[in-house]
């Protein structure tokens, strides 16, 4: 089996790793070095700054404030998003009517440009002509007339997370559907002969066999929860929301780098974020590492 193994490993890894090193890893490592400097990002004058940026970061309330929002997202997003995605993917294997139509439709939010997403949700959350306030009124709940969902520090982050879930469910659903595609039919056949209900089959066949994909999805969504850059930027128009109530680390980092002209400090944040997410990924990879099924 392993004849010519080493040659294959080297030749298959060389090109991807080479490209990746030159165009991604090298620039990223260079950027990480800026974390130890004072650099405006605009000149070749780069002053070495030791750990000063990190000390400043430790005492920076705004950074912790932003990080706390990422943490909230990290708790909320995975169960809801992956739960829904898995649920939908499962339903599609149940011979549901219109499955093809649903599968296409559920992916729509992924196809929509971020500009559109921002505008359409801005209208949905709109205080006066918004659909959300209209539906709340239709149910008969008063007292929320003209409530500004994106203009109130108590609701803005929740409103943004709602959009994230809406948008990402389709993505994970497609991942799961693809993963389910590689599960051999005999397993279901066997389970069916045993008289298993669809729900039991889901838990005893689909989930275990899909476990590797689910793990991947968990890592993806954890990384996404620690990011949220694009969506927060467009939903709060770059301000981080009222009282910065929707500010996340990447948006704070972005404004530090670009509007404050402090690339060194921003890079320090980037590095801290990187370490946090790496640790998180390694932990969750270990944590979820259960014996994946051997066929």
């Amino acid at each position: 089996m392993n004849r010519g193994k080493n040659g294959l490993i080297v030749s298959f890894l060389a090109l991807p790793l080479g490209l990746y090193s030159v165009f991604v890893l090298f620039p990223y490592c260079a950027a990480m070095l800026f974390a130890f400097t004072r650099w405006s990002g605009l000149s070749s004058v780069i002053r070495f700054n030791g750990l000063n940026n990190f000390i400043k970061l430790y005492n920076d309330e705004k950074f912790w404030h932003a990080l706390s929002h990422n943490a909230i997202a990290l708790v909320i997003l995975p169960p809801i998003t992956l739960g829904l995605a898995l649920f939908f993917a499962f339903l599609f294997t149940q011979g549901t009517r219109f499955a093809r139509f649903f599968r296409i439709a559920f992916f729509f939010p992924q196809v929509l440009s971020v500009v559109i997403v921002a505008v359409v949700w801005s209208f949905i959350y709109h205080p006066t002509v918004g659909l959300l306030n209209a539906s709340i009124q239709a149910i008969g709940i008063k007292g929320l007339t003209s409530f500004p969902w994106l203009g109130d520090s108590r609701t803005v982050f929740g409103a943004v997370l709602g959009v994230v879930i809406w948008q990402s469910v389709g993505f994970y659903m497609v991942l799961f559907v693809a993963g389910m595609g590689s599960i051999p039919a005999d397993y279901y056949e066997a389970a069916r002969i045993d008289g298993a209900s669809p729900w039991v089959m889901f838990w005893s066949v689909t989930v275990p066999l899909l476990w590797d994909t689910i793990r991947t999805a968990i890592i993806f969504i954890a990384i996404a929860a620690m990011d949220l850059f694009g969506i927060v930027l467009v939903m709060t128009n770059g301000t981080g929301g009222p009282s910065r109530a929707a500010d996340v680390v990447p948006t704070y980092l972005f404004s530090t780098a670009f509007s404050d002209g402090n690339f060194g400090y921003a890079s320090a944040m980037g590095l801290v974020l990187l370490v946090l997410v790496l640790v998180l990924s390694i932990v969750s990879l270990r944590f979820t590492a259960r014996e994946s099924f051997e066929y």
């Binding site: 709109h126 006066t128 409530f147 500004p148 994106l150 109130d152």
Partner: peptide, 20 residues
């Protein structure tokens, strides 16, 4: 105008143009 805090420049200016 109630809800003003949640409006973008275009949206609030639209409310104003509508006479709200």
């Amino acid at each position: 105008l109630p809800g003003t805090a949640g409006l973008t420049h275009t949206e609030s200016q639209t409310e104003w143009l509508k006479g709200h």
